[in-house]
Amino acid sequence: MKRFIFLILFLVAIPGSLYADEKIKVVATYPYIESIVKEIGKDAVEVSTLAKGTEDPHFVVPKPSLIGRLRQADLLIINGASLEIGFIPPLLKQANNPKINAGSEYLIDLSKKVELIQKPENVSRSEGDIHPEGNPHYYLSYKNFPNIASGIKDALIKVKPEKREFFEKNFKDLIDRFEVKRRVWDEKLKSINGCKLIQYHRMFDYVARDANCAMFAEIEPKPGIPPTAKHIEEIIEKSKSEKIHRVIGDDYHETKSVKKVSEAIKTPFVLLPHDVKSFDNIKDIFDMYNYIVEELTK
């Protein structure tokens, strides 16, 4: 018994010395966050990501194996706007890490750094899976990128102020590279200025805003509610007299109804990624923005 108690005490006492290294342990909820953290933190951070790029971001499996990483995290960075509400709270409860609990200063909510659109006036579940804070898919718009990246940079500085210069420099380099790409994307989007789009889920509204386009319809009758045959017929009917530029599907929803609408209204469809690593060739966040802009303007 005595030996057992010693063993426990030994294992409990270890954390400071043996396990710790100099890197900031960051847990990111989605791959796009991981991508930006790596750009700014470089070798000063170690990032673990909870969701995969191919998972439905609203219904991520709360893998208990992630509890160990949350337990050790110096920083937890989330998308916010209730996107993670279905899987983060039970994991945090079991991780017992006071640094990153709800309301703690090392839990960073990126949605606070940008302006959300489509904030509902009335909140009711009869409207489907709506988010009281507004549309949570803001990160798909490259115009929100500087704010998101700056939020991440500030968070890293908060954990390790002595590395401020390093993070500031990496951030500046990243923004410089972004500005070059941004000019290209801005130019490309001009070619579809004012267009009308149809999407499956309310996911690409921020992208449409970047291009000054309008979302004409959603294939889901309400967010999170799968389409009915009648709803699809209605969309087809009302789209016939319109000039629709593209029908947009994504990587994790079914694509059958997207193709059906596309064929019926004789408009090409595109499948866009909802996150980094949604498709094999989307390795970082610039790949993601690039893919979205290229596919929409092709």
Binding site: R71, Q72, Q94, N96
Partner: peptide
């Protein structure tokens, strides 16, 4: 009372 070990997988006592 629970204790979560500082490991990269989950181990809880």
């Amino acid at each position: 009372l629970t204790y979560t070990f500082p490991l990269d997988f989950m181990l809880m006592l």
